[in-house]
Write a protein that binds this DNA or RNA. Sequence first.
DNA 1: TATGAATGAGTCTTCATTCAT
DNA 2: AATGAATGAAGACTCATTCAT
Lengths: 194, 194, 194, 194
Amino acid sequence: MGEKSNQKRQLILETARKIFMEKGYKNVTMKDIVEACGISRGGLYLYFNSTRDIFAEVLRLESQEMDDVFSAGVPEDAAASDILALFLKEQKKEILRKKSNLTVATYEYFFENKVAKKDNLLRSRFEEAVTVIEKLIVDGVENGEFYCEDPLGCARNIMYVLEGLKASAHTMGITEKTVDSELLYVMQGLVAEE
Amino acid sequence: MGEKSNQKRQLILETARKIFMEKGYKNVTMKDIVEACGISRGGLYLYFNSTRDIFAEVLRLESQEMDDVFSAGVPEDAAASDILALFLKEQKKEILRKKSNLTVATYEYFFENKVAKKDNLLRSRFEEAVTVIEKLIVDGVENGEFYCEDPLGCARNIMYVLEGLKASAHTMGITEKTVDSELLYVMQGLVAEE
Amino acid sequence: MGEKSNQKRQLILETARKIFMEKGYKNVTMKDIVEACGISRGGLYLYFNSTRDIFAEVLRLESQEMDDVFSAGVPEDAAASDILALFLKEQKKEILRKKSNLTVATYEYFFENKVAKKDNLLRSRFEEAVTVIEKLIVDGVENGEFYCEDPLGCARNIMYVLEGLKASAHTMGITEKTVDSELLYVMQGLVAEE
Amino acid sequence: MGEKSNQKRQLILETARKIFMEKGYKNVTMKDIVEACGISRGGLYLYFNSTRDIFAEVLRLESQEMDDVFSAGVPEDAAASDILALFLKEQKKEILRKKSNLTVATYEYFFENKVAKKDNLLRSRFEEAVTVIEKLIVDGVENGEFYCEDPLGCARNIMYVLEGLKASAHTMGITEKTVDSELLYVMQGLVAEE
DNA sequence: TATGAATGAGTCTTCATTCAT
DNA sequence: AATGAATGAAGACTCATTCAT
């Protein structure tokens, strides 16, 4: 029994995810989702009570997947600088993807739902990433790949730059060139010291 | 046209500005504005056709004032590092002001109204600030206050960090301490080289 | 300006009153009223926010009118027994009117909206009637029309009987004969003592 | 049919009874009952087709029990006035019980379902009670406990007063003192003649 | 018998926008 | 220029009822 209903739940979440990517968060109505899913008005309410609930779940799944991806794709013996470059490349891709990402929806959602820091998914994702980057830098310094006196500060700086780029991409627009030069600048700070 | 009608226009814009600061952009209705202004429904439409128009105008005025303030408050002979510090202090204040700023409304507005780069107010404000900061850095380097090999890159980096902080403040929340350490990190990059 | 809008308010209240008489309180929807009035959905909300508000107002007006009627129709020099008989006749008429009265709606309304005793219209109407009847009895006793040792108790008894008849009329049904014999019984208690 | 299915029927009725006592008749949905019973939506429909059917049955059982109770609790040789006092005391208790009684639900049900007099449970319960009271009065008169020229009229009067009190309790609110003085008044009419 | 997912009609409520005055 | 009553579309939500399993 749970199986089938779980499938529909998945269908709803996947469909809703696409809609949120297209339209952001605030513009999405229960009706939008109902129609896109091809289910009845009442049917949707069996699974979720609001677009808010749906988006929260979409976001939760998104975060889970991210964790998986992160821990998966990276070779054990890769050089720190390579891993960092890889990470930045991923971020770049997401920053430049205009439509197919949840950035706008996520911003809109969190503008409206001030979440306690503790439970704030965005915050924990951010902190997690900071930790990973910091560790990469430390490793890199040990290997002589990087030069850095304040790995934590540098990691945070990188993350805030990325956040700034992400936001800017959806407000002022941003070119690949701009992203490249920003990321380059950040990497040079790590490498280019004599 | 007349003086009087211009006064009402100002009233609307000032009132709307406050509302946008409180509620963001998407949550504001024509009704909200009408009621806050104490004018008639139809009356509002004589001046503006939508919250979008109103916000666009609020934003335009905001930008004008900013320019004025920038060029005004700074002493002629101040040291580059002092001016930069002053600028960052202002930014910090705005980042930490939770309610009384237009950040959220602005984001929401631009999420919804992808403006061509040319006419994008946010973009031009950003570029302008980059230019100013770059010039400060160049001055600072000449004076021996700063050490920096890529003033433009550094200026951009600073601006993106600020953007990231601004965004983060409204999504994940941010403490004064965090802002301080970010800004410190940025300044140290300019000063702390031997 | 207020004139016209006041007319519509009256129209709504009168129309709603009829509907409440037909369908009771709980069965009436905003849609019912909108359609009966021939106005738009949103239009109704300009005047009232809920059927509850509308009914409360209908009831308030009803009570006002009652007061007026009471004080109006009675000749100055009428005998107490005649006035009482007149009052009971009115009550009888209302009890037997199956459809065109607000009894059911009123019950349903007060079942749902437990009103503080002080502000309870029903209660004040009841008390008022008790007072009037008591005074009639006292007058009647003085004139030798009535014999009664406890005018207040008797007045209350009459009112509770009437309430019981009113309720019964809408739950078990009641015949004119039954009402007559009840009222007769009550009157005889006042007159038939040697 | 089977034992088991009969048990479930009982469960439904008992559960629904509690809900009706809490929420009246019109506010109760099939969903409420399903959830309170812990059975499936479809399951409920195997036994009853509507809240109306369920309430009708609840009421039928209620009446049966009443009969049982009535005939049970009364000692054979009790004085008429004692039995009547006992009866009134029971009624008083029910009138003052604010929540745990079916009065409101019953009113709401009969407002909506005008039942032919013949089949009207309320009516037959009422008539039955009248008969019992009348008989008590007759007995009392024979014993010299009571003085009464119209036992039937008096019995009816008592019942309508009780009905009036019951209704008032749920619309205007009523205090124990009020009930007491009403019942006292009624009893005095029987006793207090010289 | 029993389940519970699914439906769709019905109601409430809010808003941008228009228009007669 | 200005008013504010009026409209109707749009979205949220709930419920009785059905039906495949």
